[in-house]
């Protein structure tokens, strides 16, 4: 039985798809048979980030509507053997997703895979609710800003009430906090919320902290998940996140700004 993990956030543009691609890649690199599903029907992005946009023939909606088999729609990743992608449809909208259809796909994939990552669309509507409904675990992606934290809080409320586990009264969905685009220097300046504030408000376990990094944008545009860039800070931070997801203890990195020189510390001011 696969573990179903939804990557969600409420707010758009915080790095859900980037994180889903990076974590799926990391899990597969560690030897886990992994599939990542794009639930953002109508705004297909995951295939671009994964660099397989030219190989999409059938998609999630085709499978749900019986126009294609699951194996026809699954795309095998070129770089990692254990990794598959199930792309979203660009021409349909989220109403094309049905709860039964999604359940059937997840059930089938569960037999063959170790991990199923569901890349949720932004918002709290049907698409997002279907992406989270069958999840065992959730990675809530949050940027260090007030609106993102509030939207994540809203999503956490939905995870606790509008999932199959909640409705059946089973163990709750295991919630993990993933903070992305963290810029320690700007946090020190007070431009961004700091790590502790976010943890205090959301009150869930931190699974990873991804620094704001040029490597992320570069990776997105090249269609290579940033986990492959193991020289970059973001690549290493995602690798740490994957280790924690697999139950390992890894110390937190990248949450403090580079040490300032003695002079700038004496005259820098502005520190809280």
């Amino acid at each position: 039985m696969a573990k179903i993990i939804v990557v969600t956030s409420g707010k758009g543009g915080v790095g859900k798809t980037t994180s889903a691609a990076a974590i799926a890649t990391g899990l597969a690199l560690r030897g886990n048979k992994t599939v990542v599903i794009d639930f953002d029907v109508g705004l297909r992005n995951l295939d671009l980030i994964m660099g397989c946009e030219r190989r999409v023939v059938y998609d999630l909606v085709n499978v749900i509507q019986g126009e294609a088999g699951l194996n026809q729609a699954l795309i095998r990743d070129k770089r990692v053997d254990n990794l598959h992608i199930l792309p979203a449809s660009q021409t349909r909208d989220k109403d094309a997703l049905t709860s039964e259809g999604v359940e059937k796909i997840l059930e089938t994939l569960s037999k063959d895979f170790d991990y199923i990552l569901c890349d949720s669309p932004a918002g709290i509507e049907r698409g997002a609710q279907l992406a989270m409904y069958y999840a065992d675990e959730a990675i809530v992606v949050t940027n260090p800003e007030v609106s993102s934290v509030r939207d994540s809080d809203r999503i956490l409320g939905l995870l606790a009430s509008k999932t199959r586990r909640a409705e059946r009264g089973e163990d709750p969905v295991k919630e993990h906090l993933l903070i992305t685009r963290y810029n320690a220097a700007r946090v020190d300046h007070g431009d961004m919320l700091n790590l502790e504030d976010i943890r205090e408000i959301l009150a869930i376990d931190l699974i990873g902290l991804i620094p704001e990094s040029e490597a992320v944008l570069r990776a997105s545009n090249q269609g290579v998940p940033v986990t492959h860039d193991d020289n970059s800070d973001a690549g290493q931070a995602y690798a740490d996140t994957v280790s924690r997801l697999l139950g390992e203890e890894v110390p937190l990195r990248f949450h403090e700004s580079q040490k300032k020189s003695l002079l700038s510390r004496m005259f820098g001011g502005g520190r809280r």
Partner: peptide
Amino acid sequence: RSGQQVTAPEGDLVVIGAVNA
């Protein structure tokens, strides 16, 4: 959490935790 509403229609309400924005 944000968007949730907890009501005690007949007595006191005690929340062991935070009430978020």
